[in-house]
Design a protein around this nucleic acid. Structure first.
Lengths: 252, 252
DNA sequence: ATTGCCAACTGGTCAGACCAGTTTTTAACC
DNA sequence: GGTTAAAAACTGGTCTGACCAGTTGGCAAT
């Protein structure tokens, strides 16, 4: 292991062990270089390594600081390195939607096939709740509706995977509702799509349900693409702020 | 945003978009510096950033390489409570296959659409390797073939999720090849299916590729179902034994 | 007391040199 | 010719010293 790796390791351990608190200023590069007996280039490489890992952040002219990392959060899934890798890349959002299109479609198909009377009741309840609330201010009904459908597929793996994808979307972008719903006609389209999915599942038409769900996801993705190309700023999340319970839906 | 960040971002996007395949060698620091018109120090800082993020790894005297993304999938971690819940339940296997059918299909479709000449070369190489080896004794060629296809989809999320599912299957059941291949006609069918997938992707027929891949997964599932209903004992794994590198494929 | 400038921080980038591993080429030997 | 060992030409790792570019704070002129 090279010197720079060793430096970065020592700094990281210092930070994680609490020797340096979040937000605290790290000694200047020149100071570190002198104190550690290495060149400044090495210090910079070590800092960049930690920077890529999200442990420190650097401001030109000010200095380097310990990033306010997720503190006591119990979210075990979000801390995966993959998250840091994916998050922040715009394309990731569309990759995510590309996969979700398939899985949401499959979930709707299976729900139409296998939903029990209890499932139907829960879906209906969630659907009713959907109409009353403004999705912009409250994302929970939206989550609930999709969740009820997925659970009605009676495929635990599918539930698990889609949930993981939902978490990834929360990390990647705070979009969908916040970006889409403000437009009146969009809200209308989305409600219409929800209704189509609902009716297809209730009528026990698997293929119709699948197509409706896929079209729904695709519509969201296309709408985002349009907004982005039009220069409308997407509300992106600060990445580290643990506000995963924000009032914004990653569905629609 | 500084130059080094920009460089690291560009490189990372190149990798994520598939411009650089996992394991592939990255141009030398001096070459990158010249080609990008920056100093070597900047290139090194950018590489360290990616290194800290786990995207690249560097060997002294050899060069820098794209880290095989998703090496240890933590998202669906082995230690996750869900694993203990899922593993051992026979139904889980079919739930898994149900999801995989969709995603493998999508992967094949995207591969047919987006495979670059490099991707095609890698897929062809993996396909050739497939014919020479007996899948029963060596599962790696089989893994390699499917892996090459998924990576040609140029959707990192898809790669990630399918890899996680593969790991789950390894945990759940040591099946497929061990159970299926002993039957001569099955081995023949599977080889035929592989060939269909391969040709469709090479011919750039997305929908054909998708259907072939889905039929392939479905065939495996159905075959397992048949075997199980006929009382043929499935070789199930001891659940906790970390022999994930066993010589048995979870594909076909 | 306010304003404005300048000096002393901070990180960002560059150039060139040298050390340390790895690979390839070359040349000597059998 | 074929084998082997030295040497040259790669690769990344580290150092030095310089200069540019933002930020901050103090000191002087108003």
């Amino acid at each position: 292991m090279g010197i720079s790796q060793e430096i970065s390791y020592r700094l990281e351990r210092l930070i994680l062990d609490g020797g340096l608190a979040p937000g605290q200023k790290i000694p200047s590069e020149r100071q570190l270089a002198n104190r550690l007996g290495v060149s400044r280039a090495i210090v910079r490489e070590a800092l960049h390594e930690l920077q890529g890992r999200g442990v420190v952040e650097t401001l030109h002219g000010k200095g380097s600081f310990v990033a306010s990392i997720v503190p006591t959060t119990e979210d075990l899934d979000d801390r995966s390195p993959l998250m840091h890798l994916f998050a922040g890349h715009p394309r990731t959002l569309y990759d995510l939607l590309e996969v979700r299109e398939q899985l949401e479609g499959q979930a709707a198909l299976l729900a139409a096939q296998r939903a029990t009377s209890i499932d139907r009741h829960r879906i209906t309840k969630a659907f009713r709740l959907l109409g009353n609330t403004d999705p912009l201010t409250n994302a929970k009904p939206d989550h609930g509706f999709h969740q009820a459908i997925v659970e009605a597929s009676h495929n635990p793996i599918l539930v698990h995977v889609l949930n993981a994808l939902k978490n990834m979307m929360l990390l990647t972008v705070q979009a969908s509702v916040a970006n889409l719903n403000p437009r009146e006609e969009m809200r209308h389209s989305i409600m219409k799509q929800h209704k189509q999915i609902y009716q297809a599942i209730m009528a026990g038409k698997p293929d119709t349900a699948r197509k409706a769900a896929m079209a729904h996801v695709r519509f969201v993705g296309d709408s985002m693409r349009n907004l982005e190309s039009q220069g409308t700023k997407m509300i992106r999340m600060p990445l580290v702020t643990g506000t995963s319970e924000a009032g914004v839906s990653t569905y629609t």
